[in-house]
């Protein structure tokens, strides 16, 4: 790890000011991904702004939204009574991620900003356009077992590894951001980017912008929800495919639905068309199968991830079944 300047402001403005204009400054919160990447030389910031002493860890309900501070810990949020009561999908997704120790370190803001686990991104001796623009995509013609089936480009086929973000995009969350040019709100679906020609940019945050909170509007998805995570061992592994499914069912009829997938794209993958296809239908396996068909339109696989073309729709069906408690 290279040496870096370390500052630990206690005020939000000071943190943003401390970021300065230097491109190689990073905010550090939990550090669970950034330090991992720094140890391997994948990221080499020359200045770290430790934001852990900022008062950004509150969880409050106000005017029909639940506001979760960016520094609230994954474990805290997962077990928070209001999260469990109002947004159980989020709690499930958080609990499916990482380990108990990491959830005690990782923050909500940091979780969103974690970087891909693509093998080629992680190894500085291999090509990766995300790490080193112009060096090529190692995964495209390489070992792409974990990689995207949606929204990729010929520059990058990496996937976003967060579980929490899959739930947040499904729940229509909004990200609250503060930066040198002031505050702004980003709909969760607009936070992460598709790789396109600039895979080095994971998100639409501008330099120096700090996520301060995420807000989730009240919704009817308090009961029929399920976060399904398919992975290569029973726990403590990144998803091959994950599905956040939320249904609002009345008299066995689906009144509203939310559906998103993880492990399939460069961003948490909201399935809006599939959601529409569910609304007004009976909560049956046949309905779910047809939604999965809709969801998979446009999916394309590479040499080693063709299994996802089957695993993804199956997981959608399974998650919806479990959300609806359909045997």
């Amino acid at each position: 790890m290279n040496q870096f300047q370390y500052v630990r402001p206690t005020k939000q403005k000071a943190a943003i000011d401390a970021f300065g204009r230097e491109a190689d400054t990073q905010f550090i919160a939990g550090g669970t991904n950034l330090l991992d990447l720094m140890k391997r030389g994948v990221m080499n910031p020359t200045k770290l702004v430790d934001i852990n002493r900022l008062p950004l860890d509150r969880i409050d309900r106000d005017k029909g939204t639940l506001l979760i501070g960016a520094l609230a810990l994954n474990s805290t949020v997962a077990e928070h009574p209001q999260v469990r009561q109002l947004h159980p999908l989020l709690g499930q997704a958080l609990s499916a991620g990482a380990s108990a120790q990491l959830r005690n370190m990782a923050t909500v803001g940091g979780n969103m900003l974690q970087r891909t686990r693509c093998y080629y991104f992680y190894d500085t001796a291999m090509p990766c356009n995300k790490r080193e623009p112009g060096s090529g995509c190692g995964a495209l013609e390489g070992y792409n077992r974990m990689h995207a089936i949606f929204g990729f480009s010929d520059k990058c086929i990496a996937v976003h590894p967060s579980d929490m973000s899959v739930a947040l995009v499904a729940l229509d969350a909004t990200v609250l951001v503060s930066g040198p040019k002031g505050d702004r709100r980003i709909p969760f679906g607009g936070l992460h980017r598709l790789p396109g020609d600039t895979p080095q940019r994971d998100t639409n945050l501008e330099p120096g912008e700090l996520i301060t909170a995420v807000s989730i509007p009240d919704n009817p998805f308090t009961k029929n929800v399920h976060y399904l995570k398919v992975r290569e061992r029973a726990s403590y592994a990144f998803a091959l495919v994950s599905v956040a499914a939320a249904l609002h069912i009345e008299n066995n009829v689906i009144r509203d639905a939310r559906l998103a997938m993880g492990g399939v794209a460069h961003k948490p993958w909201r399935l809006t068309e599939a959601e529409k296809s569910l609304i007004g239908k009976l909560a049956t396996e046949a309905t779910f199968r047809q939604a999965a068909d809709v969801a998979m339109q446009g999916a394309r696989a590479f040499k080693h991830n063709a299994y996802k073309l089957k695993m993804a729709p199956n997981s959608i069906i399974q998650a919806l079944k479990q959300a609806a408690a359909v045997a």
């Binding site: 190894d123 001796a125 390489g142 061992r233 726990s235 403590y236 592994a237």
Partner: peptide, 16 residues
């Protein structure tokens, strides 16, 4: 060159 070369990519069994 190995691509799966840490505990995140080379999965040894965990408690679960």
């Amino acid at each position: 060159r190995y691509v799966t070369k840490d505990f995140a990519e080379y999965h040894v069994p965990v408690q679960a």
